[in-house]
Amino acid sequence: MKITGKFAVLLGCVASIAISQPAFAEIEETNLRLAHVVNENDGFHAAATRFQELVAERSDGKISVEVFPNATLGDERTLLEGMQIGTVDMGVITNGPVSNFLEDMAVFEMPFLFPSAEKAYEVLDGPIGQELLDRLSEVNLKGLAYAERGFRNLTNSERPINSPADVQGLKVRVMENPVYIDTFRELGADAIPMAWTEALTAMQQGTIDGQENPVNVVHSFQLNETQTNMTMTRHSYAPAIFVMSLPVWNNLSEEAQEIVLQSAQEAAEYERELNAEQESQQLEELRASGMNVIDDADLSAFSEAVAPVYVKYGERFGDYLPRIQEALR
C-alpha cells in the first residue's frame, strides 16, 4: 500500500530519528583542541568557531571543540609537529608551514598562479586539491578542508612600492617557505623567513621593513601602526588548511569522522565568504587610518620579475604545476 500525505511525512521523520539515534550512539564523548596563531578578529578564528558550532550541533553535543587562538599552543610549525605525535588535536594552519612537511603543497603559492579566488577554489576543492589533502597522511597528518589566508599583498614602512625596482634592498619578512623566499629574492628584497609572532615584534622594533599578507591580516593586526604603505600586489594566493593529527583522526568513529570532515568544509567555505565580504571595508578603514594603499602598481613587471621562480620550481612539484595550469585554462 502506498502511503502519501502528512502521514508519510511523519513516518519519514520517525525513520530519520531512528537512523540518527544509533549514529549518535556510535560517537563517544570527545573534546578536540583546535589551535591557531592569530587573534580573535581574524578569519581563522571565525572559521574555528564556526567549526566548533557545526560539530556540536551535528554530534548532539558529543563532540566539543576548544579553540586556542593567539599561538597559545605554539607557532604553526610547533602545532603541526604536535599533531604528528598526537599532542595537538587539530588547527587552522597557513599553507606555507604545511608545505614544510609535504613540499608539494607549496605549488598553490607559486607567484601569480591564480587569477581569482574563484579559480583557486575550483582547484582546491577539485581532484588536485583533494589529492594533496589526502597525501598529508604521508606525514601523519589528516587534511580536512581548505580555508584561506587569501591573496597576499606587500606592506612596508619605508616607501611606496610601484614596481619591482622599489623593492630593492627592503628587509621583508616571509613565511618559512622556499617559494616565498625565492619570490622575494627575485624581486630584490632581503627576504627574511620567520614565524609570525616574531615578525610582529620585528616590525615594532624596526628590525624589518615590511611583510606580505592579505588585507584581513593587515587589518586584524593593525599593521598600519608600523607599516605606512601597502601595495596591492596580490602576488600569491595562500590557502589555509583545517588539518588534524592523524592518530587523533584514526581514534574517531566513522560517524564522528564524517561530522568533522563535513563541518570543516562548511566552516572553510564560511570563512572564504567572510573574507570576501569584509575586504573592501577593511581597506577603507586602513586608508582612513592614514595607510597609503597603492592599487595601481605595475603588476605585469612584478610577474615578469618572478619568472625565474617558475624555472626553478617547474619540475619540483612533480606534475602538479602543469595540471593546475591546465585546469585554469
Results as ranks from 00 to 15, higher is better:
309 V>L: 11
302 F>V: 05
145 A>Y: 08
144 L>E: 05
271 E>S: 11
15 A>P: 00
125 D>N: 12
327 A>L: 00
308 P>R: 12
91 G>R: 08
155 T>W: 01
56 A>M: 08
82 G>A: 10
284 E>R: 11
302 F>A: 01
139 V>S: 03
27 I>S: 03
211 Q>E: 09
81 E>T: 13
48 A>W: 11
133 L>Q: 08
48 A>M: 12
222 Q>L: 00
289 S>A: 15
221 F>R: 12
91 G>Q: 05
256 A>H: 00
258 E>A: 12
178 P>F: 04
29 E>L: 10
303 S>I: 02
267 A>V: 15
161 I>F: 07
220 S>F: 09
52 Q>F: 10
180 Y>A: 13
118 E>G: 04
299 L>K: 07
307 A>K: 13
214 P>Y: 03
23 A>Y: 11
147 A>W: 11
59 S>R: 07
124 L>W: 05
130 Q>G: 04
207 T>K: 10
189 A>T: 02
1 M>N: 12
207 T>W: 08
311 V>I: 15
34 L>C: 10
163 S>I: 13
309 V>H: 08
273 E>N: 07
112 F>A: 07
280 S>M: 12
198 E>M: 11
308 P>W: 12
290 G>P: 00
191 A>V: 08
2 K>C: 06
238 A>P: 02
82 G>L: 09
247 P>Y: 04
58 R>N: 14
316 R>C: 09
314 G>S: 13
237 Y>P: 00
313 Y>G: 14
146 Y>E: 02
125 D>Y: 08
210 G>W: 01
315 E>H: 14
166 D>L: 12
128 I>L: 04
129 G>T: 05
151 F>M: 04
197 T>K: 07
192 I>T: 03
212 E>P: 01
111 P>H: 07
159 R>A: 08
50 R>K: 15
295 D>T: 07
146 Y>G: 01
75 D>V: 15
305 A>N: 06
309 V>N: 08
290 G>Y: 01
77 R>H: 13
199 A>S: 13
38 V>K: 13
9 V>H: 05
153 N>W: 04
294 I>Q: 09
276 A>L: 12
136 L>Q: 08
309 V>C: 10
230 M>G: 00
204 Q>F: 02
40 E>Q: 15
75 D>P: 09
152 R>W: 05
155 T>V: 09
318 G>I: 14
35 A>N: 06
240 A>I: 01
273 E>H: 09
229 N>A: 05
306 V>K: 08
142 K>N: 11
294 I>A: 03
215 V>C: 02
129 G>L: 04
208 I>V: 14
7 F>S: 07
140 N>R: 10
173 R>P: 02
87 T>D: 09
141 L>C: 12
214 P>C: 09
16 S>D: 03
60 D>I: 08
81 E>C: 04
191 A>T: 02
319 D>M: 11
71 A>T: 13
213 N>K: 03
279 E>L: 10
155 T>P: 00
33 R>K: 14
291 M>V: 00
217 V>E: 04
